[in-house]
């Protein structure tokens, strides 16, 4: 795997002639978590799609560059709110899906190791329908890790989990994605403050950097600085736009 690059995204995004956001200039520092918040429909998921090189409905006028100058395509992994597990495949087969889709022989040992790391070694041959929500999302995380890409794009991956599971998953993800450049889209100020080296509030006009508490993530959710940052962030999100 190549070292995680810094990514810079500059430009404006239009849908059918209407500006969705921009002009913005966002830098995702190498090996760090950047959390993006903003109102629904402001274009947070579009940022993820642009970085992933996925087709978008509108037009992006700008550029996305990596610090090492290489193409981002095939260096990103993607995790969404729904776990996107294929119901006819087992946990293990879902984890090695990427290699199968590229027509390569999967590294089963590595997959077993990763599933062990996310606490699923006893469930390798179960189908997703036999798993709880948390186990399904851990399988999705193992699948993301299996890809071993330097950039991870996470679009509200923990949004559907209950509070305690979400906290567990945040810690697990922070641990296993520690050396990667991560873009996390979230609706939850607490999640952003806990995980983000950098927090960005996306509005139709700009991508505002929000100051983070001085200690490094993953932050103590009970610390005064964390709670106060969350409160400030929530107040900012409730303002319009």
């Amino acid at each position: 795997m190549t070292p995680a690059p810094t990514i810079r995204l500059r430009g404006t995004y239009h849908i059918e002639g209407q500006q969705l956001f921009g002009p913005i200039d966002v830098t995702l520092p190498a090996g760090q978590w950047t959390c993006v918040l903003g109102r629904s429909g402001v274009g947070k998921s579009t940022l993820v799609r642009l970085c992933a090189g996925l087709p978008c409905t509108g037009e992006f006028d700008g550029q996305i560059t990596a610090s090492d100058g290489a193409d981002l395509a095939e260096r990103v992994s993607f995790m969404a709110q729904s776990d996107l597990l294929l119901p006819w495949l087992s946990v293990l087969e879902n984890t090695v899906l990427g290699a199968r889709l590229r027509g390569q022989a999967p590294d089963i040992q590595k997959a077993q190791g990763l599933l062990d790391r996310v606490g699923l070694s006893a469930h390798l041959h179960k189908k997703p329908s036999a798993l709880s929500g948390g186990m399904r999302q851990r399988t999705a995380l193992a699948r993301t890790l299996m890809e071993d890409r330097p950039v991870a794009l996470l679009d509200e991956p923990f949004g559907a989990l209950d509070a305690s599971l979400r906290a567990d998953m945040q810690e697990l993800a922070a641990e296993v994605l520690a050396d990667k450049t991560v873009l996390l889209v979230t609706h939850d100020p607490a999640e952003a403050v806990r995980l983000g080296h950098q927090i960005i509030v996306l509005t139709p006009d700009a991508a505002e950097k929000w100051p983070t508490p001085p200690e490094m993530p993953i932050r103590d959710q009970y610390a005064v600085a964390t709670i106060s940052c969350q409160a400030g962030l929530l107040a900012r999100l409730r303002q319009s736009p």
Binding site: A52, F78, S82, L84, L97, G98, R100, L101, E147, L153
Partner: peptide, 17 residues
């Protein structure tokens, strides 16, 4: 579902696979 196909594309999946 489009999300599944998006994921498959980011994984570098070939059309045939």
């Amino acid at each position: 579902p489009a999300d599944i196909l998006d994921m498959a594309r980011t994984m570098g999946g070939t059309k045939g696979q």
